[in-house]
């Protein structure tokens, strides 16, 4: 088990390396640079700036400088937000983004599993049809549109919830962002859960459990849920990446102080260091959480053994 974790961690390194390299060069392919402005800077100042950030070096040299710093844990300075390092900016936004992401992830996963189970148990009855509708809405409407609709309805017309911002840090500010983020994730999970639960409920071992007279509740909670979760857990990894990328946009829509606020601006203003830093941070989070997801497998499916 421990050796499995170590091996998995080791296998992350080449993946991470390739991803960083790809991002580094793709970013530079995009036209424009961090110091392009409406009114061009005087050439002397521009030259100094570029030298300060090593942008005057050949691209390959810049790459090795970046990797060298990265190995020492240094993500470099931000090129646009003056006087801040990338690490400082990420550290400013990270707690909020993690909180938002975690809330949405947990709520969506639990709600998706519960909804999928209820729909499976009531297959082809009204709860099942309601779920189909809710799932469709979550999958069809993109998050920026959903966010705007909710802002208009609940924030502007009904005034039940703040339309955005995080001034006094009350949970009310989180309700709509969490819904927007969680909805598509919950929709996908509930669909997976419904399908696998229907299959499990028709399985021979559930028939055995019923034949033992265990009662519906025990049959469901002890015999059906665990095996039905297996395909759901395999989706949690990819699902999490969807959710995290969604959070960058949702934070922007609702003017929330997370990493997303910097990321969108950084991408638009070609703040190479900040974009790369954000990508690396999210990649690390996703890789580690994927590892946790894989470990959850061992508990759900005893046939999987980690060696």
């Amino acid at each position: 088990m421990l050796t499995y974790v170590l091996r998995r961690l080791a296998s992350i390194i080449p993946v991470a390396f390739i991803a960083v390299t790809a991002c580094f060069f793709i970013l530079r392919l995009a036209p424009g640079g961090p110091f392009d402005q409406e009114r061009a800077l005087p050439p002397a100042i521009l030259r100094n700036l570029r030298a300060a950030y090593d942008l005057d070096q050949p691209l390959v040299i810049q790459y090795f400088i970046y990797i060298g710093r990265l190995l020492r844990g240094d993500l470099g300075p931000s090129m646009v937000v003056q006087d801040f390092t990338v690490s400082q900016l990420l550290a400013l936004g990270l707690p909020f983004s993690l909180m938002l992401g975690l809330f949405a992830f947990v709520i969506a996963t639990v709600a998706g599993i519960a909804a999928g189970t209820i729909a499976a148990v009531n297959q082809n009855k009204w709860p099942d049809y309601v779920l189909v509708l809710v799932v469709m809405i979550g999958l069809i409407i993109p998050n920026f549109l959903m966010g705007s609709i909710l802002q208009l309805v609940f924030g502007v017309y009904l005034r039940w919830l703040p339309a955005g911002g995080w001034q006094n840090g009350s949970m009310a500010h989180l309700v709509m962002p969490v819904i927007v983020l969680a909805w598509p994730h919950a929709a996908r999970i509930s669909r997976l859960m419904r399908g696998s639960m229907i299959e499990v409920l028709g399985s021979n071992y559930v028939r055995t459990a019923k034949a033992k007279g265990l009662g519906e509740r025990l049959v469901l909670s002890r015999h059906a849920i665990k095996p039905a979760l297996i395909p759901v857990v395999s989706y949690l990894g990819p699902g999490l990446s969807y959710l995290l990328t969604g959070s960058l946009i949702v934070e922007q829509i609702f003017s929330l102080p997370g990493i997303g606020r910097y990321f969108i601006n950084a991408a638009l203003s070609r703040d190479y260091g900040l974009v790369l830093g954000t990508v690396i941070l999210y990649m690390a989070i996703i890789l580690v959480l994927n590892l946790l997801v894989d470990l959850a497998y061992a508990w759900l499916d005893p046939k999987v053994r980690y060696r």
Binding site: N204, Y205, R207, T208, A211, G213, E216, R222, H223
Partner: peptide, 27 residues
């Protein structure tokens, strides 16, 4: 079914054809 559960598995039990799939793989 709720009432039947008092008798199933206690007074009347059933064994099925396929032992490979009739036991729960996760327990």
């Amino acid at each position: 079914p709720g009432k039947l559960d008092a008798y199933r598995g206690k007074d009347i039990a059933m064994i099925f054809q396929d032992p490979m799939t009739s036991l729960n793989p996760s327990l």
